[in-house]
Design a binder for these strands. Structure first.
Length: 269
DNA sequence: ATAGTCACCTGAGCGC
DNA sequence: TGCGCTCAGGTGACTA
């Protein structure tokens, strides 16, 4: 379940291996991802000049455009020898000079692969995305301004990619715990001070997870995939009924928009 | 425009 | 051992 930290870790993992490599071709074993995979002939022979990330999208950028990869719920990208045995869910190989390939694996096929000519950020999937949580733009006043008059629960508000990107269910739970704000609170009723705590918590939660991902997910190349949050400490997610790490109260659970939500009723107001 | 729900998909976990 | 059920979740599409 790649959330933003895992995507960033993937980016860092593959970058040194594909930078400067020429794309010799590709093998599509199953094009039925979230959208049918279709790559233009013009991609052949191009060289990867940059490996970028925007929200949970990875961009393998060449001189003429960008290959846009989303890992969905269960996707992974690994740099492996081409002759490595093919698994049941190894849907796409991107073949590079030198004999290796970038292998896209995705059991649930919720992910996607597109090619966008020119500036990859102009792709329709990326066009209306909000700021990165680590950007200067994402701060208390931004959150406060965008949340006015909105009645949605703050948890859903944070998970809206038009507001801020990279906050999936797990980190929405964690960040709101960190901020001491109850997930059910109406976004429009948050004070500026609460927005400040939330902005800081989102940024810190994700930054810390990326740092830990860098250590727990180090061995990317040619290895088996690993769960992204392995060894990561989560304060509330998945801990319903257990003790709050801060005050010891039992953590409560409910569903907001069919998504598991866990919080501490005494720490989060 | 906003808010809520559905759909997509498969593996894991569970009860029987 | 196996069947059938439910759940998980990112996010675009759809509905009210």
């Amino acid at each position: 379940m790649p959330e933003l930290p895992e995507v960033e870790t993937t980016r860092r993992g593959i970058e040194p291996h594909v930078l400067g490599r020429r794309i010799e071709g590709w093998i599509i074993r199953d094009r039925r991802l979230r959208w049918p995979v279709k790559l233009p002939r013009s991609l052949k022979g191009q060289t990867i000049e940059r490996v970028a990330r925007r929200a949970k999208y990875l961009g393998l950028l060449t001189g003429s455009g960008g290959l846009i990869v989303h890992l969905g719920m269960s996707g992974s990208l690994r740099y492996v020898p081409r002759e490595r045995a093919i698994g049941a869910h190894d849907h796409v190989d991107l073949l590079f000079d030198g004999g290796a390939c970038l292998r896209y694996t995705d059991p649930r096929r919720f992910g996607s692969i597109h090619f966008q000519p020119g500036d990859w950020r102009e792709h329709w999937l990326l066009a209306s995305l909000g700021p990165e949580p680590a950007s200067a733009e994402f701060d208390a006043s931004y959150l406060h301004r965008r949340s006015r008059k909105k009645r949605v629960a703050v948890k859903n508000f944070l998970m809206d990619s038009r507001i801020v990107v990279g906050v999936g269910n797990i980190y929405a739970n964690e960040a709101l715990f960190e901020a001491g704000v109850r997930p059910t609170r109406a976004a429009g009723r948050l004070t500026l001070a609460e927005c400040a705590r939330i902005a800081a918590a989102v940024r810190e939660t994700l930054t810390r997870a990326i740092e830990e991902g860098g250590t727990t997910l180090r061995d990317f190349v040619g290895s088996d995939g690993r769960p992204g949050y392995f060894g990561e400490r989560l304060a509330v997610y998945g801990r319903e009924g257990e003790r709050c790490v801060r005050c010891g109260a039992r953590l409560k659970a409910l569903r907001i928009g069919a998504r598991a939500t866990v919080y501490c009723a005494s720490c989060q107001r």
